[in-house]
Every structure is written in structure tokens, then in C-alpha cells.
């Protein structure tokens, strides 16, 4: 039996390298052993995973049923009011959010975020067209939807680019929340004068900004960072 010259462990007759340090094993006087002599079988058992597409099909069928039923009932009983449009558009939105991701073999965050934002805008447009109530759709909803899309794409890009430390990840999240709430505040300031909305977005922006600054200080200040990591396991 050979020994690894690096680790000093005894190896089986078959192995071409030491499994611990990958040092090649030379056995000039011993006949080459075949894989049949391996202490472990060659065959691997990779269970077939439940196909993601099946989940997608089940969700699609579940969403299709109420849509079809409501369309038929709407057409037969009250064709003058298109109330089934709400049911159908809700089903389409839910399908894009929950069934579509399962149709891809690999998760595609950018594409899914764009599709989600588009579906949400389309869903809101149905209400806008059917209700005809004010300019909220163009002035508030569309800018907020675009802002959400940009935020989602930024976060997806940030987390996909490389592995970040917990501290930097938290900073990115709080920074994004600050920016999102701040811009939302500006949009609302120019379009609506609802005091409740103002309070919510300002308080979220201020809180997340304070947390962002605390983490930024922690990132620069060694002693504070140690205290923080010790106490919060960051």
C-alpha cells in the first residue's frame, strides 16, 4: 500500500492522488489498478428533483379557473359591467409574481424584477382605465413603480456581484431604503399633500439613514466595529 509523502497517511491501492492534499501517488513497481478496485462505487445516485415547471403548471391552473369562471358569469349575467376584468388582471398579476419564476430553470433576478414591475404597472392601469379617478396613476403610481424597479435592480446587482460582509449588506439595504423613501417623499411632495403619507416616508427615511450612518461609522471605526460585531454578531 502506498503512503502520501506529504501527509504521511496510508492510501488505498487504487487512488491516483492523496485525497487530503492532492499529492500524486507514484507506484512504479505496482500494476495500474482499475476503477473496479475503488473502495467506493463509481455509480452516483442523483435523485430527480421535482420539476419546477410542475409547480408553475399547478399555480397557473389554480389561477386560470377563477378567471374563466368569472369571465363566463360576467358575460352571461351582467355583460354591461366588466367586473371580471378585476379578477382576470389579479390572476395575471399573481401568475407573473408566483408562477412565472418557476418556469425558468435558473433564477433570473433582473428579468423577473422587470417583469414584476411591468405586471404591477399593467395591473394598476386596469383600475385606472376602469375607474377613471384622477391623475394618481401617471403622477404617483408610475414614478413609484419605476423607482421600485430601479431599487430592485440595484439590490439584485449588489448582492449578485460578489459576496459582501454582513455589515456592508446591511449598509446597502438601509442606504437603499433611505434613497427609496426620500425619493418617494419628493414624489408625494409634488403631487399629493397627504400628511399621513409624508409622515410615513419621512420617518422611514430618517430611521434608515440613522442606521446607515451608524453602520458607516462602524465600518470606519475599529473599536466601534468590534463592539458591534461582538454584541450583534455582524
Amino acid at each position: 500500500m502506498p503512503y502520501c509523502v506529504n501527509c504521511g497517511v496510508k492510501l488505498d491501492d487504487f487512488t491516483p492522488k492523496c485525497p487530503l492534499c492532492m499529492t500524486d501517488v507514484f507506484r512504479p513497481q505496482v500494476e495500474e489498478k482499475t476503477s473496479v478496485d475503488s473502495p467506493f462505487p463509481i455509480k452516483t445516485d442523483i435523485p430527480e428533483q421535482k420539476k419546477r415547471k410542475y409547480t408553475s403548471v399547478i399555480i397557473s391552473v389554480l389561477l386560470l379557473l377563477p378567471s374563466v369562471v368569472s369571465l363566463v358569469v360576467n358575460y352571461l349575467l351582467s355583460p354591461q359591467t366588466p367586473w371580471s376584468a378585476y379578477v382576470v388582471s389579479t390572476s395575471i398579476l399573481l401568475w407573473v409574481l408566483f408562477a412565472l419564476p418557476f418556469m425558468f430553470k435558473k433564477i433570473r433576478p433582473y428579468l423577473l424584477i422587470v417583469l414584476d414591475a411591468t405586471a404591477i404597472a399593467a395591473y394598476a392601469s386596469v383600475f385606472f382605465v376602469l375607474v377613471h379617478s384622477g391623475e394618481w396613476f401617471l403622477k404617483i403610481f408610475i414614478p413609484l413603480d419605476i423607482l421600485s424597479l430601479a431599487t430592485g435592480l440595484f439590490l439584485a446587482g449588489f448582492f449578485k456581484s460578489k459576496k459582501h460582509s454582513k455589515l456592508h449588506s446591511l449598509m446597502a439595504i438601509f442606504g437603499t431604503i433611505t434613497a427609496f423613501s426620500g425619493i418617494t417623499e419628493l414624489i408625494l411632495l409634488f403631487t399629493s399633500h397627504n400628511i399621513i403619507f409624508d409622515c410615513i416616508s419621512i420617518s422611514i427615511a430618517v430611521t434608515s439613514f440613522i442606521l446607515f450612518m451608524l453602520l458607516a461609522i462602524a465600518d470606519k471605526n475599529k473599536h466601534f466595529k468590534i463592539w458591534l460585531t461582538k454584541n450583534f454578531y455582524l
Binding site: C7, G8, V9, F14, T15, P16, P19, P39, F40
Partner: peptide, 19 residues
């Protein structure tokens, strides 16, 4: 782990599913 055991004087024989 195993190198430490060898250093301490325990002979170790290794098998693995790597190759």
C-alpha cells in the same frame, strides 16, 4: 485533522470517494 494524528504517531489509512 488526519495529518495531526499522523504527526502524533497514529498511523492512518485513508479511503475516499474523491477519485
Amino acid at each position: 485533522f488526519f495529518s495531526k494524528l499522523v504527526e502524533m504517531g497514529i498511523p492512518v489509512e485513508i479511503e475516499s470517494n474523491l477519485f
